[in-house]
Write a protein that binds this DNA or RNA. Structure first.
Lengths: 330, 330
DNA sequence: ATGAAAGCGCTAACAC
DNA sequence: GTGTTAGCGCTTTCAT
């Protein structure tokens, strides 16, 4: 631990200029006589002066920090988002104030309020009981969300869940599947639109969809739901899972139950988390562009902060990722 | 977006008291006549006053924020750390300023310096070219690191890598393996100690160890290294990987190469990431207590901030997790 | 128990 | 170009 950090005033005194001058120099707000410039440069690194960003923040009202709230940092879909956001933030000299809202006894709303005070804007991925959304609209700080929102006053970015689901269903139908099931998580905001996508596609082929639920949108949740789906008379020959985590859990349990995958049942996930590639059979899924979503969200945020009132929804296109967990029926 | 947030002064005026009084009330620094107390309480929530934490920070010099720097947010070992740290931080009304150092063109040192200015302390998990360590020692803010450090002036927490490695080796020897290999990542700070652990154990049984390297400590790295290990005359009958990610990649590629696991080769990883359970065969590994590490690191940090100069190394005990990727030779 | 006043370190508007 | 002067919103002695 070293001596007390020097302030702008220390520099001013040492260099025989005024604090204001030092400030302007440090921020490149103005040009200087090379005389002063040199003196300043020299003093600054002799003293090892570094601006105090906190003090700067109270003076300017800007923190150059973006708050990022996500549910579960263990879900690679979310870490993808954070990764993308982090990258863009760094490029623009912003930092990320992070909170995993799933981890707290406090309610989400409270957490967001706390976060909000320390940042210039909020990027939020949450279950969002809609009152949080109302709160965001009221907030003086800009927010960006994920998924298509009921109203467009809060900008958001999402991959088109309906289309993603439709694509998967189409793929499965093309593979001649007869009985398709969806293993969803009712607590998730995009559950319904995914069901619609699948349903619409199946309906256009004269097929129906059976829907099952997990209790948790995790691998463990998928494991626990498996037997309910597999150990019945007319079991499905394909199951579409709400996300990859669920799919992976489901596959493990199905195999433990003695089923052969994809021979006995085709399984597909959604998100395209990196691990999908490493399970057996490799998981067919649809890429929901997690990392890109984080990037775009941060770009939108920077836009808001720049005053562009560009609001609105940015739609990313999902992409089918065909691997080995699906196969043609006959 | 709503009206301007009210300040401590607005409250003071409305309630006919001085700003100082409001401050003391808000911070519970003092007791008040119930008269004033009620007036204050009423005005505060009528105005919806919330303290400005940034201004408070410049006045107090404390931010109630801890910086967390990790390399790769996609590695579940690291997200485990963040998760643990986040939980403890939240419990103590601290926030996490997060940066993924692997994501930036800027060097780590610079990133840390930036972070450092906005937080009360730093929790750092990094490749750390040791100059970063020197920097931390010099820094006026407390830091805590992961792993046993060359000197003890910076507190740190780690799972005993030597012991973890020893345990694994012992397990493999007990399973009658003849030719054991280590697939390491030389860039990692704990590579050497893990090698030592394995080596010492093997040596005590009169066995030797062959060491291979990956280029990246990721699943992809493991995949790429696989053929170098497997496609040789006297291939090993067991490989210990530097981490689970590598192990998972290795297994996938080995299977793609036509090998049967664990019949042809036993594979073991380190970390115990949640996914290890879901690959096939389920990965035998050793739990390095990621989440607990994050928690303990944060506790140590809080201790430092409380002035307890408790420094030193906290050692977590690794635990063998036996699954299906290893089997007895004969 | 309450108020007055002096900062915290920095920025920004204005003067010279 | 450079200096002066107010703040930013809050905390914290020190009086009263």
């Amino acid at each position: 631990m070293k001596k007390y950090p020097s302030t702008i005033r220390d520099v001013a005194v040492e260099a025989n200029v005024s604090p204001g001058t030092v400030s302007k120099f440090v921020n490149g707000t103005q040009r200087f006589s090379s005389e002063v410039e040199n003196r300043l440069r020299e003093t600054i690194d002799r003293l090892g002066y570094r601006p105090n960003v906190v003090a700067r923040s109270v003076a300017t009202g800007k923190t150059r920090t973006i708050g990022v709230a996500i549910l579960d940092i263990h879900n690679p879909h979310f870490t993808g988002i954070v990764k993308g956001a982090n990258r863009v933030a760094l490029q623009h000299d912003y930092s990320l104030l992070f909170v995993a809202t799933g981890e707290s006894q406090k309610n989400e709303r409270q957490l967001l309020e706390m976060l909000s005070r320390r940042v210039d804007g909020l990027i939020v991925s949450s279950r969002m009981p809609d009152d949080a959304l109302e709160w965001m609209r009221q907030s003086p700080k800009p927010s960006v969300c994920f998924g298509k929102l009921p109203d467009t006053s809060v900008p958001s970015v999402g991959a088109e869940g309906y289309r993603a689901a439709y694509l998967i269903a189409q793929h499965l139908v093309g593979l001649a599947h007869k009985r398709i099931a969806f293993l969803g998580f009712p607590g998730a905001r995009w559950n319904a639109e995914r069901i619609r996508g699948i349903h619409d596609c199946l309906a256009s082929h004269g097929k129906s969809l059976s829907v099952f639920d997990v209790e948790q949108p995790s691998a463990h949740g998928g494991e626990r739901a498996c037997s309910r789906i597999m150990l019945v008379a007319e079991r499905p020959d394909a199951v579409i899972c709400y996300n990859d985590l669920i799919a992976i859990g489901f596959m493990k349990e199905a195999q433990a139950l003695g089923f052969q995958l994809p021979k006995d049942i085709s399984v597909v996930g959604m998100d395209n988390i990196p691990f999908g590639e490493y399970v057996h059979p490799a998981l067919t899924t649809v890429d929901m562009q997690s990392e890109r979503m984080g990037e775009v969200a941060m770009f939108k945020m920077l836009d808001c902060l720049a005053g562009h009132t560009d609001k609105g929804f940015a739609m990313l296109q999902p992409e089918l990722v065909l691997r080995a967990s699906t196969m043609r029926r006959n």
